[in-house]
Amino acid sequence: MRKFGAVLTLMAILAMIVAGNAGAATKGIVIDGSTTVGPIAKSFAAYFTKKYKVPVTVSESGSGNGAKSLINKSCDIADMSRSMKPQELAAAKSKGVNPVQSVVALDGIAIVVHPSNPVRSLSEAQIADIYSGRITNWRQAGGPNFPIVVIQRESNSGTQETFKDLVLKKAKVVRTAETQASNGAVKNRVSQTPGAIGFLGLGYVDSSVKKVAVNGVFPSVVTVKNRTYPLSRPLFMYTNGRPSGMVAKFVDLPKTPEGQRIIKELGFVPKY
């Protein structure tokens, strides 16, 4: 009886392995990467599957993981909220992968605070000072006498890296900064914490938090598109070599009216 059980277990494991391989071998498109690009990819996938009857799987594991998946050839498209780093390109080259970049949409990183916070505008320098710990009280940034709770993202987040590149340059984030694992978690914490400041992809901002103008410019579709808003960036999809077939159709969705409608609906800014 025990033997029978063991054999059954073994068979089940084998079946799972086989099924797993079979899944990877079908003609579907596998997408992995940024949690910022993820919602776009998912909406594209729903539309794409309905239109072309091609299954699309979308995972959101962060830009770094997306790049890794593409380099390891375990995905067809890597969603990234930043360009590939030189190390990643080198790693790709060494594995015979040729990453090709296409822009999906534009994204603004919104600086958000608690709705009760009267601060309306911050300069880039002030934001950098807050995140590097030189400013610790809202009074020093034109607000009430209230300690600032700094909230950042985990180091594997593309939004975090873009924020660091755009705002902090070489400065370090203050040690006491709280670290959250996703856009949703940051929004949740900011919306509940009176002294909090955080940053979000523009698509994640809703009325539960308050957007702050940067250098006097509010983040919006218009200001991101005309590049007057300083904290904006392109979002990418990376493919191995020039995309062809179904993958090319997928990557070109942002150029179609339907794709642009989806991008706008999600709060991002179409590039085309």
């Binding site: 594991s61 962060g62 770094g64 993981n65 790049a67 890794k68 380099i71 780093k85 190390q87 990643e88 790693a91 985990e154 180091s155 594997n156 670290t179 694992a181």
Partner: peptide
């Protein structure tokens, strides 16, 4: 848990 994603041989 939080650093595992990015922490790969690729990034040092």
């Amino acid at each position: 848990a939080g650093d595992m994603g990015e922490a790969d041989q690729v990034t040092g």
